[in-house]
Design a protein around this nucleic acid. Sequence first.
DNA 1: CCAAGGATTGGC
DNA 2: CCAATCCTTGGA
Length: 203
Amino acid sequence: MRIPRCATGEKRSTQLGRAFYARDPQTVGKELLGKVLVHVDGTCRRAVRVVETEAYGGTEDLASHARFGPTRRAAIMFGPPGVSYVYLIYGISHCFNAVTGEEGLASAVLFRAGEPLEGCLHATTGPGNLCRALGIRRGTHNGVDLSGGRIFIEEAPPPQERILSSPRVNVAFAGSWAEKPWRYTLSGNRFVSRPWPSGGRPL
DNA sequence: CCAAGGATTGGC
DNA sequence: CCAATCCTTGGA
């Protein structure tokens, strides 16, 4: 099925290309806030405004799946940027990431929450819920190209809200790496997940 | 092969 | 607070 587009091709030109992702995950994580994450599934278009992300690094980042090196699961994080990394966590929830940085060095941005815009029939707060609402799952969407495919990011006006950075969620096992303020949220947005960012410093 | 544990969620 | 649920990883 072809993706319908308007006569001017305007929609298509707002999709972010590979160059956007080919930077460090902290920069990409912050810049993703306020942009629109879209999944076109047949005739159904599901979309959210991104309100919460987290940055994950390579082998040095003890909170990252890349900490064991390019294992079967994490190898995709070492690949080219602008590709999806979807995994199942706790046997229950799918988590959607965008691979960032240069090929050969692992990093990614986890999408943790969004504001429902189109076609969402479930909650969009929390990484597992976000995947369910967008219809994204590991079996069919791991390793797909995010520039030119059915899942992509659309450009949007800069967010009015302040951007907060705070420690990442549920990575206490990572020692001092748990303290890195690599969780990014739109201040005051009601779709941001728990725990609420406290002591997050304004950027 | 086996044991341990996790980038979560929802219910009590 | 805690169990659900299964995939991934490291080690024997």
